[in-house]
């Protein structure tokens, strides 16, 4: 801390300030970017999968309906933690399987039976960024199944006469979908989607399962009893304090989300519901 600042705020505060701005704390703060990225990118994936799933569920073709129903029902039943562990691993090994097919020689394969990957050239190294993207896509797949269900229900709530009018005026099925059906569906889907969003936000705390040094992992590390040889015990078990900070972060996200959804309701409800209700 610079002397002039210490003079103003006093030694104790200055020490505290120095502590919470040290290198490790800075890394903790920076790790919020993983959580925020996973939340936003995961939500975009979920919405995309949800829309596709709902359109399939709504389709006239039996096969599409079957795929949509399988997605919505099977994936909703799998625990998110399990899927979170399963998908990135399965995806990684799937890629490595194909790499092995093209990159490994027969000798290498014979020598490496029982090992994975079967040869060094088939290894796909995943860094934090790759894991983060795979984790977000996992979130997207899991919560997309819930979105598909909610959006499908919302699409059914749209007044049939609205769609009939669109058909009667010569719109193609895709135009009916994009110009009338989907724009009118949002107001019915938003309450359900906001629930899913909150669940997804909470699930971002699972990132550390994939060895991503996220906010939870750092809170764990920083809060653990800290003993240095030169100075003795720096602090005892402070994890609860760090977890408390995370609580506050998630509550702030909740608060901002509520505001955002209120805005979206106003926007998508225009003309659809009474102004007084919005």
């Amino acid at each position: 801390m610079p002397d002039w600042l210490t003079n103003i705020i006093g030694q104790d505060l200055s020490d505290g300030l120095a502590y919470i701005t040290n290198g490790k704390h800075m890394m903790w703060y920076a790790s919020f970017r993983f959580t925020i990225f996973a939340g936003i990118f995961g939500a975009l994936c979920a919405l995309t999968f949800g829309l596709l799933g709902a359109i399939m569920l709504n389709s006239n073709f039996f096969l599409f309906r079957l795929i949509g129903a399988a997605y919505a029902n099977v994936v909703r039943g799998v625990p998110d933690v399990l899927f979170f562990l399963f998908f990135p691993l399965a995806f990684e090994q799937g890629v490595e399987y194909f790499l092995a097919k093209s990159n490994c020689t027969a000798d290498e394969l014979a020598a490496n039976i029982g090992n994975w990957p079967p040869c060094p050239d088939a290894q796909w190294f995943l860094g934090t960024n790759e894991y983060l993207i795979l984790a977000s896509v996992s979130l997207g797949i899991v919560y997309g199944a819930f979105c598909a269900n909610v959006i499908h229900g919302a699409m059914k709530s749209v007044n049939k006469g609205q769609l009939e009018a669109a058909k009667a005026y010569g719109m193609k099925p895709m135009q009916v979908m994009l110009r009338v059906h989907i724009p009118q569906m949002w107001i019915y889907a938003l309450p359900g989607l906001s629930n899913i969003w909150m669940l997804l936000v909470k699930a971002t705390s699972l990132l550390s399962l994939l060895q991503i040094a996220d906010i939870v992992l750092w809170a764990d590390r920083l809060g653990a009893p800290n003993y240095l040889k030169q100075v003795g015990l720096v602090h005892p078990d402070w994890r609860w304090k760090y977890y408390l900070v995370l609580f506050l972060f998630y509550i702030l996200v909740t608060f901002l989300s509520e505001r955002a959804f209120a805005y979206l309701r106003k926007k998508t409800g225009k003309g659809m519901v009474d102004e007084a209700v919005l």
Partner: peptide, 20 residues
């Protein structure tokens, strides 16, 4: 779609697009 756009339909329950 081409022939439909030659026919102007007026519905009992209006069916104006509510979001427009």
């Amino acid at each position: 779609h081409r022939l439909r756009s030659k026919l102007g339909m007026v519905f009992q329950s209006f069916n104006l697009w509510a979001h427009k």
